[in-house]
Design a protein around this nucleic acid. Structure first.
Lengths: 359, 359
DNA sequence: CACTCTTCCGGGAACGTTCCCGGAATGAAG
DNA sequence: CTTCATTCCGGGAACGTTCCCGGAAGAGTG
């Protein structure tokens, strides 16, 4: 069974069948312009009979916009990004836009390609969560070409024309660390994707708009510790690659090599999985011996024992804010780009307690 | 600071600057056709200098295809769909396609709108996970219009021109139930989004291509019970709306009203969250008193205690298969639509055990 | 009846690209 | 020197829609 010839019916077919010109048919169908009620409904009827569907490509050709927004993210199976994507989709749909999404799997090469391709597809605006690469030429070029651009989660250096939406990572870390300090912890470990450079860590904390989330979260930890008069020991920051298995190994290592650590702050949602499992397997009781605080709220956080305390990003808000900012930039190209740092919130459960807690 | 005039540079600008005709410039840039090496590189250099970016809309206008596939799903923050989406994206990207995705939030109205909009945007093919609505007119019309169409996860009745990719839900349930029966369970409850119609449940199991996953999973449960000579009691099937809180309530109710149930089969990933929490809060020990088997593997399944036994869909495979089938249908419109039912697999952990298990 | 104003409609350009086709220039072969 | 094939290039149509503009028909006013 073969499909019928897909000779699609155009507006001139409709016009011909309705006995009018294509201009009149166009006016009748779009609703704009002056058409008599009679011909309008006649054209509408004929169009329905023929199964006419307007060609959006041709429309975009002449109107100059595609009613489409591009989104470029590293991984859409990641909980944070998929949730953000969902709220972006909902927001822009309410304004009549569609979503062209591209996943870069963390590859700078793929990111360049994606941005390039979406730009040639003439999206009206672009939301990008750039992978931490030094080369941001493609983004700068895009912004300069006049395409509306919003950076999500991760800033990119030297991009002037773009807004930036993210959680306030410094404050998020402060929230987590102060919570632990308030419980009486002094030796607080951290699982981080960023590397700790002891030399430059003291006061030379990088400006918050040019660094990756992991770096900022580590910096926030360092600051909060310093503000409380606690010294940050290099052996307390455990570096981990971006996977739960790497995080598992890093956490096990931290627990073994630095047994005086009574609390661990895990700075990412995928790392939290490995960290929790590692603490479970270590034989150290949580929270009596070691407290754990994770990053981002998970559906499983209240399911595990002990229930996991976390510092959570306002994921929905981040998506909505990014989408709204982009829509505003599309509507008004002269609009000044904005930087929106949204507050994190602490969700206290059972995995954090005082270090001398009896049980 | 206002953006520069976004007068984008076209191919005639490039041609003019290079001193050639737009035809020659076009040949030089696309690589097709005969151009001397000299002019080819001259055009390329001028294009790079001017920052020329081809207009994909205009290209689609004349080539007739957009190198874009649409995906319509109920919810992209749902783990199953986001994982499928990720593998779809990867597969089609390797063939030079982009992804236009639309989330319907389970609303039939939004689904109609999405399919309609993506069709006017002239996607080359469409992957749809239809919400269980009786009205599939928009899909049938699409398939008849010649657009390549693949149905994902949920079939739609009377759609002839579309392939269908899904897990084999009947077999998945059989896997789960047989596992429990093999452990010695006789009174097995089920948490299902589908309603149990005792009258028609006996042998009149609906054909596997016209029903929703929840219905099929319930049917598989019924069959497996019958095959083992066990009677299915209406009070053993607990209906739940599609949310973890509803599932929590349904599970609590099931445990209270039907205490002789020694095992529970939960037929969906979001329902599994509520079911696990409910069993935890019920005071009944798992697996000693009550076994639980969930649907789909979660990152938290090995994290909770007891570790959750599940029957898992091959989510990646489902996405890849759907994408590959769609690409094949795009490449060859005369291709026969196929039905691919992929096998589920059982992942045995600690939440299932013999009912008389000592502990 | 002449004139103006309103309402409605058709013709044609335009968007930026690809594709077809004919022609000019160049080289080789007679 | 002529002929022919080959290589390269330019002109123009086409895709399907929207938009601008001018004209025809009808209604109202003097």
């Amino acid at each position: 069974m073969t499909r019928p010839a897909q000779q699609s019916v155009t507006i001139v077919d409709v016009a011909k069948a309705a006995g009018v010109s294509k201009s009149t048919a166009g006016r009748a169908l779009t609703g704009a312009g002056e058409v008599s009620a009679r011909t309008r409904e006649k054209v509408a009827r004929v169009a329905a009979e023929l199964g006419y569907r307007p060609n959006g490509v041709a429309r975009s050709m002449i109107t100059g916009n595609t009613e489409t927004v591009g989104v470029v993210i590293p991984d859409m199976s990641n909980r944070f990004f998929s949730a953000a994507l969902q709220s972006i989709a909902r927001t822009i749909r309410q304004h009549g836009y569609e979503l062209l999404v591209s996943s870069t799997e963390g590859e700078p090469t793929l990111e360049r390609r994606s941005v390039e391709v979406l730009a040639t597809k003439r999206v009206d605006g672009l939301i990008v969560a750039p992978v931490g690469g030094a080369d941001t030429h493609h983004l700068r070029q895009l912004a300069e070409s006049g395409t509306a651009l919003v950076l999500l989660d991760r800033p990119a250096p030297k991009i002037t024309g773009a807004s930036f939406v993210s959680v306030n990572n410094i404050e998020a870390s402060r929230l987590a660390v102060n919570h632990l300090i308030g419980l009486g912890h002094r030796h607080i470990g951290i699982i981080s994707e960023a590397r700790y450079d002891a030399a430059s860590a003291g006061d030379a904390v990088p400006a918050p708009t040019v660094d990756r989330p992991s770096t900022l979260r580590l910096a926030g930890y360092v600051r909060a510790m310093a503000d409380a008069g606690l010294t940050v020991r290099p052996e307390h920051v455990a570096h981990s690659a971006y996977s739960s298995t790497a995080s598992y190994a890093a956490t096990r290592r931290l627990l073994q090599t630095t047994p005086r650590v009574t609390a661990i702050y895990c700075t990412d949602n995928v790392l939290s999985v490995g960290a929790f499992a590692a603490l479970q397997d270590s034989g150290r009781r949580c929270p009596q011996e070691v407290s754990l605080i994770g990053f981002d709220d998970h559906e499983w956080a209240p399911l595990v024992r002990p229930r996991l305390t976390v510092v959570a990003q306002p994921t929905e808000d981040i998506g909505v804010t990014a989408a709204e900012d982009l829509l505003a930039a599309i509507a008004d190209p002269t609009r000044e780009p904005a930087t929106r740092l949204l507050p994190a919130r602490l969700i206290t459960r059972d995995s954090t307690a005082s270090p001398d807690h009896p049980g």
